[in-house]
Amino acid sequence: MTTPPVHPAQLIVDLGFGFILSGALATAAELGIADHLEQGPKSAGLLAEEVGAEASSLYRVLRLLASVGVFTEDASGCFGLTPAADYLRSAAPGSLRSAVLMLTQKIFWAPTGELTETVRTGRTPFDRIFGKPFFDHLASDPVAGATFHRGMSSLSDLENAPIARSYDFSACERVVDVGGGHGGFLIEVLKGSPSLQGVLFDHRHVLDEARIADAGLAGRCELVEGDFFKAVPQGADTYLLKRILHDWSDEVCVGILLNCRRAMKEGGRVLVVDTVIPPGNGPHGGKVLDVMMLASLQGRERTEEDLRKLFAQAGLRLARVLPTPAALSITEAVAA
């Protein structure tokens, strides 16, 4: 049985109400509802007692989420987990609870609510709302910063292994993960190439939560503190930039790429792991991310031609674009 198409008017209404679903999802994640359903379905009243909520309000939020496949509600009014809700459990493999908390925090929510200002002026309202630019705010607010970095790690854990398997690292000797966060992607790269040496390069407060040692890779991977706006570690043949360039303006990106170009050894390469927006008006995850960048940061998601131009300004040449099973592509650049 086929599902009838959504009427165009209903599509507009549904899109207009989209923020309500985001808010409901954020509430379920913050209250840890899925963790409390690990042993089986429970009523909204019992859940409310366990999480410190008002039962009627919680019921209404969970009823909405159940209507879109997040949780189930049985005839007695008890809520249970679905395959989607299982990703909200803190201990679930590939848990997305931290990712939901990151994506729905005010650093994205508030500027998006004022997107019209951005479209009219070409400038994000982030600095006005929070008093300083995006990453400066994260550095000054430990709670927001921790939420962001844990959320990015959570979001990346689903994609890291398939992306790492999409590139042949067997000819590489030393790889620097520039702005590599807690090291999730580098761990997958190193696991797939036993002879490869790695460098996880980021700010100290980020490296403090690095997962390299826990992965048993401390002997093959060095943690280096630094600022990729100023310089990157010298002498590697491979420089990874995963979800880095999309945060920044073209001018800033050229500076980061120049630092990589100056540091890499002869015959080296830069691998940019970001969405590459295809031509046409088909749906693509990069288009959603692009507007999120527009609202909160100075960056953007780019097309292949956009990346080609950035590389050229940094003394690099786009060699190829490799698709991956994730929404991101691997764009390889070599010395021009």
Score class of each variant (00 low, 15 high):
Cys253Glu: 10
Cys221Glu: 06
Arg262Leu: 15
Cys260Val: 01
Glu222Thr: 15
Lys265Asn: 13
Glu266Asp: 15
His246Trp: 05
Gly267Ile: 01
Ala213Lys: 06
His246Gly: 06
Glu266Trp: 11
Ala263Arg: 01
Ala236Ile: 03
Gly268Pro: 00
Asp247Ala: 04
Asp247Gly: 01
Arg243Trp: 10
Ile256Ser: 06
Asp247Leu: 01
Val254Gln: 04
Leu223Pro: 08
Lys265Pro: 10
Asp237Pro: 09
Ile256Arg: 05
Gly268His: 00
Tyr239Gln: 02
Arg211Ala: 12
Lys242Ile: 03
Ser249Asp: 10
Ala231Val: 12
Glu225Ala: 13
Glu209Asn: 12
Val232Ile: 04
Phe228Pro: 09
Trp248Gly: 01
Trp248Asp: 01
Lys230Leu: 13
Gly235Thr: 07
Leu258Trp: 09
Leu217Arg: 02
Val252Asp: 15
Ile256Thr: 08
Ile244Ser: 07
Asp208Gln: 11
Asp247Glu: 11
Phe228Trp: 11
Asp227Thr: 05
Ala231Asn: 13
Ile244Asn: 07
Ile244Gly: 08
Leu241Phe: 12
Glu266Gly: 15
Asp237Trp: 05
Gln234Ser: 15
Glu225Phe: 08
Arg220Pro: 08
Gly226Asp: 07
Val254Leu: 04
Ala210Trp: 01
Leu207Ile: 00
Arg211Ser: 12
Ile212Cys: 03
Arg220Ile: 07
Lys230Asn: 11
Met264Gln: 03
Glu222Cys: 14
Trp248Met: 02
Gly267Glu: 02
Cys253Met: 07
Ala236Leu: 03
Ala236Glu: 02
Leu245Pro: 02
Phe228Leu: 13
Asp237Ala: 10
Ala218Pro: 08
Ala210Lys: 04
Ala213Ile: 03
Gly235Met: 03
Ala263Phe: 00
Lys242Pro: 04
Glu225Ile: 11
Ala215Thr: 05
Leu241Asn: 08
Leu245Val: 06
Val254Ala: 05
Glu225Asn: 11
Glu209Gly: 10
Asn259Met: 04
Leu258Gly: 14
Ala236His: 02
Glu222Arg: 15
Glu209Trp: 06
Ala263Lys: 01
Arg211Glu: 13
Val224Ala: 15
His246Thr: 08
Glu251Lys: 14
Ser249Leu: 09
Thr238His: 13
Ala218Ile: 10
Ala231Leu: 12
Leu241Gly: 09
Glu225Tyr: 12
Ser249His: 07
Val254Lys: 07
His246Phe: 07
Arg261Asn: 12
Ala215Ile: 02
Gly235Glu: 06
Asp227Val: 05
Ala236Ser: 09
Ala215Leu: 07
Gly216Cys: 04
Val224Gln: 14
Leu217Met: 01
Met264Phe: 02
Cys260Glu: 00
Leu257Thr: 00
Asp250Val: 13
Ile212Lys: 00
Ala236Asp: 05
Leu207Asp: 02
Lys242Arg: 12
Leu207Met: 02
Tyr239Thr: 01
Ala215Gly: 05
Leu258Ala: 14
Pro233Glu: 04
Leu217Pro: 00
Cys253Val: 10
Gly226Ser: 08
